[in-house]
Write a protein that binds this DNA or RNA. Sequence first.
DNA 1: CTGTTAGCGCCTTCAC
DNA 2: GTGAAGGCGCTAACAG
Lengths: 336, 336
Amino acid sequence: MTRAARRKTTIYDVAAATNASAATVSLVLNGSWARYRIKEDTARRITEAALRLGYNVNLTARGLRLSRSGLAGMILPHYRNRFFADLAEAFEAETRRRGLCPIVVSTQRDETVEVNVTRTLLAQRVEFLFIVGVPRPNPLDRLCFAAGVPCVNLDLPGSGAPSVVSDNRGGAERLTNILIEKVARRGGSLEAVLYLGGVAGEYATDNRVAGFTDALRAHGINFNPECLALCGYPPARARDSLSGYFTRHGRLPMGLFINSIAAFEGAIEFASGLSAAALDGCVAGCFDWDPFAACLPFDVTMLRQDVETMMQHAFEALTPARQETCSLVVVPAVLA
Amino acid sequence: MTRAARRKTTIYDVAAATNASAATVSLVLNGSWARYRIKEDTARRITEAALRLGYNVNLTARGLRLSRSGLAGMILPHYRNRFFADLAEAFEAETRRRGLCPIVVSTQRDETVEVNVTRTLLAQRVEFLFIVGVPRPNPLDRLCFAAGVPCVNLDLPGSGAPSVVSDNRGGAERLTNILIEKVARRGGSLEAVLYLGGVAGEYATDNRVAGFTDALRAHGINFNPECLALCGYPPARARDSLSGYFTRHGRLPMGLFINSIAAFEGAIEFASGLSAAALDGCVAGCFDWDPFAACLPFDVTMLRQDVETMMQHAFEALTPARQETCSLVVVPAVLA
DNA sequence: CTGTTAGCGCCTTCAC
DNA sequence: GTGAAGGCGCTAACAG
């Protein structure tokens, strides 16, 4: 039989092969045959035939019948950093544990793609949807609500559904305190601490900056807006920004608070062109984590977003009651 | 109306609301109404009602009817390096371009998970499956074949389906030549070139080692098995292996051929504890790429697997004729 | 131009 | 213990 001609084997094929009815086959193959007191022999015959014929449930048909697709959806910007990659893997693991099939789709931060993908996933009748790293998730939340599909915003919050985010502010404050302590121990000036990367007006950046300035103020440091280099996300911007600082001050900042791993990449790119002497005595903290960055010959403390805990809260937020409240769960970040 | 009570609106709802039949609604909503010369007014009425009622196709039902799920599957080990992450994103992009919905699932290199996930995806009736980075893909290929679902092995080849892989051997040879040239220009001994990482007996490692030794031989270097530190994949193994070399020889190798990004991570970890003097004059080449690694203060040349081209060949291998041949396409790697 | 009919493969209820 | 029947939502063929 040629490959193209073959139709997949159905419960009817199995039924015909065993002189049983499709209903019996269904009962047996779903394990609920004991409840119907089907003869053990019949059950065995059917199981064997199914195996022999290479039977495989058609989850599409089952989904239609049961109005449950067995699909779970997640959309995220991309897989190219550890935070998103880990989130995707944690989601898949938990999803599989629940007997569902994960559908993770990246949207490259394109709003049109976000909407289209959400529409597609809803049309596929995913049983719930996690919306990760979308700055304005409300339109997507509304789509889910209209479709009666529970959803949760992760990483970036929205008012249209429960949200689970990292403790950007508290984490940044903690990280800054570590930075301050290190600088002080080296006898450096606390004025010379720079915040590098991120975008003003953005949820994560704003909160991290708030934590940063909280810590500075608590140490009696009169805050200077020039300490903020919110130059955006692309590594090249961070590189150029740090380069500019270096040119203006003739040296690196004593302490460097780096907004995220992308900015850190840019900082490293600039630093890699400097002499060892120029780097000496400089300490850094980064709100984000990467295994590569973790083994660099620089004094850098990294904060990791607690993906496991976030995922746990996200799944808890799927219950109908929680869906109504649109609660905001803030998960502490951990030192890497 | 409470959320739980709401049933999703179907074409029947739209039909009832517009005094049309379900078939007409279906035709209109699928855009093929012009072909059936449906009155423009009717079409408009139906379109409007659909929008107003928040109608959304049920792709499950459509899939059942058409025996086409609209789903495309890919399994891969994980998302935690750029090669796999880029592969996943390229797959998604191409898949969406074809009007399909991508399902990418990571298996953590667990054979049981690989089989279960493949089964699930086949049960979801994916229209084809890409199998990425599975050392022994044949069992999975057979499952797909039995289900009549086209599949392609990517990154690691198998004899049960067409395969698309990087030119491990040629790429490694090219990279080694660059390494040799650099070492020679610095007046270093070509004997002191080390291959670090990977596992003997494994497809990718074996081919890369072959390319490595090809290049050495072509330069008249009498091959020494001690130049091969096939210590495995975990960064810590590479770190310890390099540390051992350092202890034995009192210095780093002049040239370092690194099997993959994971080994590079380990090498960096060890190197970060060395003085600048100890690093000076040492050059490295890595068969793999990472944006972070690319901006480190080390002389390292990196080879990137050409994900776009691989993906292109993979999609071409989906045609029935190509499925029969189980061909092997070897895609050149590119300098990063 | 539009409605009717007949399933796609599966599961559940209800007879027998 | 097992089979028959109905229907999940959609679409393609065929009537009108």
